[in-house]
């Protein structure tokens, strides 16, 4: 009698221990790099909690592939070097899938549209774009344009308007400050972000979009994806699968509607 109890206990304990170790090994921890200051995509609430569309996507993907998440805050211009230096495993930071980035890192399939738009004073003297939505280079002369260093917007300007007077910033918040201060005449940024963070607020009165939405695939890529180091095909496949599942289950739409009045991805990305 005594013996069987002890035996049962031993078996139970062994089972618990085995299960415990097995569980610990299966839930790998993925370190996720993001700016942590890019509202409403990745930012901290007043209580210091990380939130935003990118964070929701990261959590949704982690749940599907069964991984734990650890967030690493990294300034934008060092994001890819930090990934390559193994400071974290994934970039979930609203990074567009562009050809120049694909030379250094891999991307999952896209989870958000990649698009840029200029914000400037409401009463600009000359239009910057013509009726066919093409930029008018001579009307850019004398204007200082604020951009985030290493952004898709910077490569677009370098290619399309190389003579524009570009001012490079390390983060997105100073762009709005200096636009209000008059240190720059216009900024190019994500229109969804500009609307929520700036134009819809009191400090944004007197400013408006001064360009159409620009999304040339050559510079803006096919969309925003999750970045990972090259040569991890298994991880990439599980990320792709997870994102497609999020799209097909309507989760991405649900995440987007928390911040915007409309979804910000392409439903076709969920096919096949």
């Amino acid at each position: 009698m005594k013996f069987t109890t002890l035996r049962k206990l031993t078996i139970g304990l062994t089972a618990v221990l085995t299960f415990g170790t097995a569980f610990g090994a299966s839930a790998e921890t993925l370190r996720v790099g993001m700016e942590c200051t890019y509202a409403p995509f990745n930012y901290r609430t007043a209580d210091g909690e990380l939130t935003g569309y990118d964070v929701d996507v990261a959590k949704g993907v982690a749940e599907i592939i069964g991984a734990d998440l650890e967030y690493v805050c990294q300034q934008w211009d060092g994001m890819i070097p930090a990934l390559l230096a193994n400071k974290f495993d994934l970039i979930v930071a609203s990074m567009s899938i562009t050809n120049s980035r694909l030379e250094k890192i891999d991307f999952s399939s896209p989870y958000r549209d990649s698009v840029g738009r200029l914000v400037g004073k409401s009463n600009m003297e000359k239009p910057l774009f013509d009726a066919a939505d093409k930029p008018i280079p001579e009307n850019f002369t004398g204007l200082r344009i604020g951009l985030e260093r290493a952004s898709t917007y910077e490569s677009w300007f370098n290619a399309i308007l190389p003579d524009a007077d570009i001012v490079l910033y390390d983060g997105s918040e100073p762009l709005y400050l200096d636009l209000v201060n008059g240190r720059v005449d216009a900024i190019m940024t994500n229109p969804m972000k500009a609307h929520l963070r700036f134009l819809a607020k009191e400090e944004g009165s007197g400013f408006e979009f001064v360009s159409p939405a620009i999304a040339e695939v050559e510079y803006f890529g096919t969309g925003v994806g999750i970045g990972l180091r090259q040569g991890q095909s298994e991880l990439k496949a599980s990320l792709d699968g997870a994102i497609k599942k999020l799209i097909n289950d309507g989760k991405l739409t649900e995440y987007a509607l928390k911040y915007f009045p409309f979804p910000i991805h392409n439903e076709e990305w969920g096919d096949n």
Partner: peptide, 11 residues
């Protein structure tokens, strides 16, 4: 230099 690093990813 920081702009070049941002373009080449070669710190």
């Amino acid at each position: 230099a920081r702009t070049i690093v941002a373009q080449t990813f070669a710190p």
